[in-house]
Simulated scan of single mutants.
Amino acid sequence: MSGPADDEGSPPPAGYVPAEGRGGFSTLNGPYFHRPGEGELAEQAFFARRRHANGLGLVHGGMLSAFMDGVLAGAVFRGTGKTGVTIHLSIDFLHMARVGEWVMGEARLTRATRDVAFAEGRAYVGGHDVVRCSGIFKLMSRER
């Protein structure tokens, strides 16, 4: 079964570029895009394809969880300059995302200690939030 949601999708939103170097799991689930910048807000996106969906054509909760885990980790890196490994992830599913939509994610670091960082974020489609989430990350010694 093929169709528009199986091809390369629509062009990424303005200002977003392909994300690279994310590892095998994320590469397989992507492609992901991010908005480069210097601010505290980490912004990423993906175009929802059939492979991201459940049998109802809705983006699978596991896909949204994996995506937001990466968005939160991006906020941790942006705010601390260190890679963070997830030690806790909390997600509230608020609305549906469908195949053929751009799912946008944004997150910011809320607090960091020497060894642990905290981040909060959301994924949204159009004018509605799809998920809200928070995470706790163990900071690794590998720096920028």
Rank of each mutant, 00 (worst) to 15 (best):
M96N: 11
Y16L: 09
T86K: 08
G39N: 12
V17S: 01
H60V: 09
E40I: 15
H52Q: 05
L28H: 11
V71G: 03
R51D: 14
F47R: 03
L58W: 08
F33R: 02
N54I: 10
P18Y: 08
T27D: 13
G81H: 10
H34G: 00
E40V: 15
G23I: 07
G9F: 12
G39V: 12
R22E: 11
G23Q: 07
G100R: 01
F47S: 01
I91H: 02
V59T: 05
S10M: 15
F47A: 02
R51N: 13
A14E: 15
P11Q: 14
T83K: 07
A66S: 12
T80I: 14
L94E: 10
L41C: 14
R35D: 00
V76P: 01
P36E: 02
G84L: 04
D69S: 06
F25H: 12
E40P: 15
I87L: 06
L56K: 07
V99P: 07
D92I: 13
V17W: 01
G61K: 06
V17I: 13
S65K: 04
R98S: 12
E8Y: 10
V71C: 06
D6I: 12
S90R: 12
A19V: 06
T80H: 11
V76I: 11
G55I: 09
R78K: 15
G37P: 05
D92C: 10
G23P: 08
G79H: 04
R51E: 14
A42R: 02
G15H: 05
A75L: 01
S90N: 14
T80F: 09
R50K: 09
T83S: 10
R78M: 15
S26Y: 10
H60Q: 14
G70H: 03
A19Y: 00
Y16H: 03
P11K: 14
L89Y: 03
P11A: 15
Y32G: 01
P36M: 06
A42K: 00
F33P: 00
R51C: 14
L94T: 04
F77D: 00
A53P: 07
M63E: 03
G39L: 11
G9S: 12
L64G: 01
Q44D: 04
D92T: 13
A45K: 00
E40S: 15
E20D: 10
I91S: 00
V103C: 04
A14K: 13
R78I: 09
E101W: 05
M96L: 11
G30S: 07
D69F: 10
E101L: 09
V71K: 01
G70P: 03
G100S: 06
D6E: 13
E40K: 15
S90H: 13
L28Q: 10
A19F: 06
G70F: 03
G9N: 04
H34F: 12
F25S: 11
G55P: 09
A42H: 04
G15I: 04
F25M: 12
E20R: 15
G81E: 03
E20N: 13
F93Y: 15
V103T: 02
L28N: 10
G57E: 06
V103S: 02
P18K: 08
S26A: 12
L72M: 09
H88W: 03
I87K: 04
L41R: 13
V85Y: 08
R22Q: 14
S90E: 15
P18D: 05
Y16D: 01
D6F: 08
T86E: 06
I91E: 02
S65Q: 05
T83A: 11
P12Y: 08
H95I: 05
H34K: 13
F47T: 02
R49N: 04
S10I: 15
